[in-house]
Design a protein around this nucleic acid. Structure first.
Lengths: 195, 195
DNA sequence: GCAAAAGTGTTCCATCTACACCCATGA
DNA sequence: TCATGGGTGTAGATGGAACACTTTTGC
């Protein structure tokens, strides 16, 4: 029986949720006798994605099977700033996903899991640089959840959770009022009810 | 690489959450080349638990690994009425679980998953007979969640979800007012926000 | 001074919580 | 008639949703 590992890498790039595909396929590799799925998942991230920030969030998804084969799937969240420009062509918006892509089921499952996760944990930290503005954070949520959020309610909610720290710095981009810069108090997964 | 399947069978018996263990271990079997984990999980349920009601709820939990071995885990929810009395001695209250049980991690994970599941799906149907009273249903929730619930709030909530059907029948047990008998409209898993 | 994004409060509504008594029956 | 479990309603608190204007900057 062969054991295959498939990895769904997810990122939010230019206001789109994107996945990493090569020739339409998720990166995959056989798990060898002396390896664990966790280790294989890390290896494959390093080898294919080439953008594994220290605190990328990696999680097992589900174990599928097809005749004579077991497919253990993982997903990883990659912050867009860490993606090497030369790799950018492998990232595809999920809206353009081919209807009969073989890995479609896995990808859909990964996206669903991500939606769950951002609603009750702080894992979005792994899609952002260390420092960011509230608008940038809100954008990530909007892209993942696929709907727009009210700015005031969002800020009230996210600040009341006490998971962010105001750095005191400001980011000024273009002709507009500079934004406060925040960072996560913890860049480790923990449970928080966001929505 | 050997692929092992382990099954955590859960049931609510006499107001306790119990698991099925033989000699302190979860039932397990090797998955053979031509089998899928799903099929192996069903086989093992049939073989060991001997109480697989038609609509037992079976779900994959997680895939663990130890050197040279992959362990795919499932859990199944078994209604206590369907358990053969001769098998009852294999069911152990989770409170009595040995601190250094090898399968402890898997079991804890299964229980955690069950708690999540009952809060946002209707899967409790698989722990009850087809027909039941609201008090019986409430008891199941209390045991799983590990806290007592207010009777009035519980009834209001559960009835407002519209997932139950009043059969019009009554169950009279002992010297007390007979209780209305309900059944689930659907005995298929579906999402409902219970708590 | 104007275009652009940041920041800020209040009202309304729905839902959760806490809580105590009467009802129907069997013995 | 009494013991047992079944059934019911309300008031207060809490949290989410809707909603518009002022502020700070670059040009």
């Amino acid at each position: 029986m062969t054991i295959l590992l498939k990895l769904t890498a997810l990122s939010v790039i230019e206001k789109k949720l994107k996945i990493f595909l090569k020739a339409g396929n998720l990166p995959s590799m056989a798990i060898r006798d002396h390896d664990s799925p966790d280790k294989a998942a890390k290896d494959i991230s390093r080898k294919y994605i080439k953008a594994v920030a220290k605190d990328s969030y990696l999680e097992q998804l589900y174990t599928f099977s097809s005749p004579g084969k077991i497919i253990v799937t993982y997903y990883i969240l990659v912050p867009s700033f860490s993606i090497n420009p030369s790799q950018m062509r492998y990232w595809f918006s999920i809206e353009r996903l081919n209807k009969n892509n073989k890995d479609r089921q896995i990808i859909k499952y990964a996206i669903q899991r991500l939606r769950w996760k951002v609603e009750y944990t702080n894992v979005v930290y792994s899609l952002l640089p260390k420092k960011f503005t509230l608008s940038e954070l809100q954008e990530i949520y909007e892209v993942i959840l696929g709907r727009s959020l009210d700015k005031r309610n969002f800020r009230k909610k996210i600040l009341s959770l006490g998971i962010l720290k105001d750095t005191g710095e400001k980011k000024t981009k273009g002709p507009a009022r500079p934004a406060e810069i925040y960072e996560f108090k913890m860049r480790k997964p923990c449970m928080v009810e966001v929505f």
